[in-house]
């Protein structure tokens, strides 16, 4: 393995889990998330020689991933929602693991009812903590589109999760 391949292997092994976490929020499924990350990493490998620094590689890879998931000519793949798919997870440090699992189930189902673009802006803005400008650049859309899609997505999430405390009231 030459140095360039070794750098790529290091990048993949260091960043795959972080990419999979975002991809899971975009797809709602471990296998679909792996497929999405695989495609993004493969495209990054094709472009590796042009990407001078590791941080460029991750930015490129994430851009590929978001475009693959929201672009008009690829069918975004998302999981179907089956409650039985979602077994309560005892690993989390909450007082009530069953309640935490239910909350995750509700959020996952709510995310999957959003359009691909709306889901992408929610993940970019509130999971990856990008600014509206950064999210717009990453998705290749205008800032106003990001604002509109974010507002619509939050409205939908509010409607789907009326009991959730996580979402601010409109206008605040």
């Amino acid at each position: 393995m030459d140095a360039r391949e070794a750098d790529y292997a290091h990048f993949v092994r260091a960043r795959s889990h972080a990419l999979l976490r975002s991809a899971y929020l975009l797809t709602g499924d471990q296998h679909l998330a792996e497929d999405l990350v695989q495609e993004a990493l493969a495209r990054t490998h094709r472009a590796w020689a042009r990407l001078e620094r590791p941080e460029h590689a991750e930015a490129y890879c994430r851009k590929v991933m978001y475009h693959a998931q929201v672009s008009f000519w690829r069918r975004p793949k998302v999981a179907e929602v089956f409650p039985s798919d979602f077994e309560p997870d005892q690993r989390r440090g909450t007082d009530d693991p069953a309640e935490a699992a239910v909350e995750r189930l509700v959020l996952r189902r709510a995310l999957l009812t959003l359009s691909a673009k709306q889901r992408a802006v929610i993940v970019l803005r509130f999971f990856e903590d990008h600014t509206e400008v950064e999210a717009a650049q990453l998705l290749g859309v205008s800032v106003s589109t990001v604002k509109t899609q974010t507002a619509r997505a939050l409205d939908k999430l509010r409607a789907l999760m009326p009991d959730a405390r996580m979402l601010p009231e409109p206008g605040r």
Binding site: A9, V12, R13, S16, H17, L19, L20, R21, S22, A23, Y24, L25, Q30, A33, E34, V37, Q38, L41, D89, R91, R92, A100, E103, R104, L107, R108, L111, I122, V123, F126, F127, A164, M166
Partner: peptide
Amino acid sequence: SLRDLADVAEPTDMY
């Protein structure tokens, strides 16, 4: 909540 949900994603060697 998003971080919590993302924790469901399991690490996989994608190389």
